[in-house]
Structure formats: C-alpha cells, structure tokens
Simulated scan of single mutants.
Amino acid sequence: MESKEKTIELIEQALESVRPYLLADGGDVKLVDLTDDLTVVLELQGSCQSCPMSAMTFRAGLEESIRKAVPSVNKVVAQNVPALAS
C-alpha cells in the first residue's frame, strides 16, 4: 500500500486537473483530510458551495478524478455540502 503522503500527493494532482474548470466558474476545492479508512474529505469553495450543479461536478469531476488516480480510495465526501457529506 502507498504511504499516506504519496496518496495525498496523487489526490492533489487529481484535484489540480479539475481545478481550472472550478476556478473558471468562481469556485475551488480544498483537500481537508484523508482518513485512515481512505475517505477523502474535500471542501468546496467559492461558488461551488451553492451551485446547483455542485453534485454533478463533485461526482463526475472531482470524485472520478480522485478514483482514477487512487483506486484504493473508499469514499469521497464534501464536508461543507450536506448532500455530499456522506
């Protein structure tokens, strides 16, 4: 299994691949935590917090990118968007 630091680095790289699209719409994303059970906790920022498309962006963009980069991830959640927090 990869080290936690390496896993975090891969997650950050995945987020960087999606970040330009978020920034173009006034949003962003921040990696908050990688738990011991390999749950990725993200925080949507800017307009992404309240955008009606945030669930689609989250699942099809952020989560998919992370899962491609780190297939061992169990779950991806957004701590500040109730619909995406579990």
Rank of each mutant, 00 (worst) to 15 (best):
E2R: 14
K4R: 15
K4P: 01
E5R: 01
E5F: 06
K6L: 14
K6Q: 14
I8H: 02
L10W: 03
L10D: 14
I11P: 04
I11A: 00
E12M: 12
E12G: 00
Q13W: 05
Q13P: 05
Q13V: 01
Q13M: 10
A14E: 07
A14C: 09
A14L: 08
L15P: 09
L15G: 03
E16N: 15
E16K: 13
E16S: 13
S17D: 14
V18R: 14
V18C: 14
V18Q: 15
V18A: 08
V18G: 02
R19L: 13
R19S: 11
Y21V: 04
L22D: 01
L22E: 02
L22Q: 05
L23E: 15
L23R: 10
A24N: 13
A24K: 06
D25I: 01
D25R: 07
D25V: 01
G27S: 03
D28S: 15
D28I: 02
V29F: 04
V29M: 03
V29L: 03
K30Q: 14
L31D: 04
L31W: 12
D33L: 08
L34I: 07
D36T: 09
D36I: 09
D36E: 15
D36L: 09
D37S: 12
L38V: 02
L38Y: 09
L38S: 06
L38K: 12
V40A: 02
V41K: 15
L42V: 14
L42S: 00
E43G: 05
E43F: 00
L44P: 00
L44I: 00
G46K: 04
S47P: 03
S47M: 13
S47F: 01
C48F: 08
C48N: 01
C48E: 10
C48L: 07
Q49Y: 03
S50F: 10
S50M: 05
S50N: 13
S50V: 11
C51I: 06
P52W: 08
P52S: 07
M53F: 13
M53E: 06
S54K: 14
S54Y: 10
S54D: 01
S54F: 02
A55F: 09
T57V: 14
T57C: 06
F58G: 00
A60R: 11
A60S: 15
A60P: 06
G61M: 02
L62N: 05
E63W: 07
E63I: 04
E63A: 13
I66F: 12
I66D: 11
I66V: 07
R67M: 11
K68M: 10
K68V: 06
K68F: 09
A69P: 11
A69K: 12
A69T: 04
P71N: 09
P71T: 05
P71H: 10
P71E: 08
P71G: 07
S72L: 10
S72H: 13
V73W: 12
V73L: 12
V73D: 05
N74W: 10
V76E: 06
V76M: 11
